[in-house]
Structure formats: structure tokens, C-alpha cells
């Protein structure tokens, strides 16, 4: 049995009489790339806010890295990485300052920040632009930097919130290669998206419909089950 990095049982969130997340259960294994899909308003964001320790469940249980989201939210926040395409970096700070800022936030020591900065600049070939403002970087670089920054404290699991929507097809593929590489090193990746071509990069997917998990499986299994060629059609059959 592989190690479970995320283990969710009957997780529920109600806002007054509206049930945003309705008793969902699933798990994510170590080293897995797990896609968390759903239509606008299906409950994706609410569920992810609970998993990242930002919101408390009404009932049910969720363990992230073995920690209970109810009682150990702060420890969970330290142990996970989070990247959103839109908000991850400070445009008016330089590349180096962004790394230092996030390193500081996550409580890394000066020595750790220094070595981590070297490592990121080296791995992403960003040495020449270390002192440039992030706003001056091409989108593809920004994106890989925000991923590196989300991993600055070496978390075992990283949450990616719609990571590559709208990005150049070449750049997007470089990004997914980075994700594959991290997964092959044993990092667990949790991706929310409503773009089905992004979903096809995941090892396993769940699709939320009206607060519940409507379907779960590998992209191949889902396509076979719904007798279609694309994830787009799977999604349409399930949600429409």
C-alpha cells in the first residue's frame, strides 16, 4: 500500500443552508499527479480551501500529510506548497527578492535561503536576470519561478490552482515537464483546473458536480467509461 498524502472522508462544508461540498471522499498517493476538476461553482475552491487549511469543514475528515485539517491547519500550511497562476509572485520585487521573501515566510534560515536561491537560479537558468524585476520576465519564466517559489520549503505536496491556462503551448509543455520531474522525485501534485487538456496530464482525476464527486479515475479510464475520445466530452456528459 502506497503512502497516502491526502486522505479525505465524507468531507462536507455548508454555508447556511447551502451545501458547497457534500460528503466527498478520495485519496491521493505519494508521487501522484492528481487533477481536481469541476464546473464553475461545483465546490472545487471550497474543497481546496479546506485541504490547504484555510477553511474548516462542517463535518467529515481530511488528512493532509497525516495531519487533520481541523486541528492542525497551521502545521499543514507549513508543510504544503501553493501556486496560483495569477497571484504567486510580487511583480515589483526582483527574482532574488521574491525567493528571499517566500523563503522568509516559510521560516528558512539565512543560510538555507542563500543555498536555495543559488539552486533555483541555477536550475531555471535565471542567474542573468536575478536582479531583474519579476514584471520584466517573460510569462514562461514567471511561471516556472512561481512553481520554484512554491517549492522553496521543500514541501511533500504542492497545490496548483489552474496553473497553465492561456499560456503559450511550448511554455506550458516545459512547465508540465517540470511537474513530471518533481512527481518522479516523489513529490505529490494536486492540480485544480477546468481546462480539460490540462486534466489529461494528470495521473488520476476527480470531477466535482454540485458539491459531490461525480467521477474519478485515470484519464484513460474515464474516457473509456464514457465512451469518448476526449476529457472535454467526459466532462460534458457528466455535467450537462
Amino acid at each position: 500500500m502506497s503512502e497516502l498524502v491526502i486522505d479525505v472522508n465524507n468531507l462536507t462544508k455548508k454555508f447556511n443552508d447551502f451545501t458547497a461540498v457534500d460528503s466527498i471522499s478520495f485519496y491521493v498517493k505519494k508521487g501522484e499527479i492528481f487533477g481536481f476538476l469541476g464546473a464553475n461553482g461545483a465546490g472545487k475552491t471550497t474543497a481546496m480551501r479546506m485541504l490547504t487549511g484555510l477553511s474548516k469543514p462542517t463535518s467529515g475528515q481530511a488528512l493532509v500529510l497525516g495531519l487533520d485539517v481541523n486541528s492542525s491547519a497551521d502545521r499543514i500550511k507549513k508543510g504544503i506548497g501553493y501556486m496560483s497562476q495569477k497571484f504567486s509572485l510580487y511583480n515589483d520585487l526582483t527574482v532574488k527578492e521574491n525567493i528571499r521573501f517566500y523563503g522568509g515566510i516559510y521560516g528558512l534560515s539565512r543560510a538555507q535561503i542563500k543555498s536555495k536561491t543559488e539552486e533555483i537560479l541555477e536550475e531555471l537558468s535565471l542567474k542573468d536576470v536575478a536582479k531583474k524585476l519579476v514584471s520584466e520576465l517573460p510569462l514562461g519564466w514567471k511561471q516556472r519561478l512561481s512553481f520554484a517559489v512554491a517549492m522553496v520549503h521543500d514541501p511533500a505536496v504542492v497545490f496548483l490552482d489552474e496553473p497553465t491556462g492561456g499560456v503559450d503551448p511550448h511554455v506550458r509543455r516545459q512547465f508540465w515537464e517540470t511537474i513530471y520531474e518533481q512527481a518522479s522525485r516523489g513529490k505529490t501534485i494536486f492540480v485544480t483546473t477546468h481546462y480539460m487538456d490540462e486534466a489529461e496530464y494528470c495521473d488520476r482525476l476527480s470531477i466535482m458536480v454540485d458539491g459531490k464527486i461525480g467521477a474519478m479515475g485515470t484519464p484513460g479510464e474515464l474516457k473509456e467509461h464514457y465512451s469518448t475520445d476526449t476529457m472535454d466530452d467526459v466532462f460534458l456528459k457528466l455535467v450537462r
Partner: peptide, 22 residues
């Protein structure tokens, strides 16, 4: 998929190899 991508990148017949989901 990831291993295969890296393997094919080095193949003599490859012009380009790009991931499209799985």
C-alpha cells in the same frame, strides 16, 4: 510517459516530441 518522452528526445528519427496530456 515522462521516461518515454526523455528517451524519444534522443532518438535519431525524432524531429520533435511533445506531451499532449497522457
Amino acid at each position: 510517459t515522462y521516461q518515454t518522452l526523455q528517451t524519444l528526445r534522443l532518438a535519431p528519427f525524432t524531429r520533435s516530441i511533445l506531451p499532449f496530456g497522457d
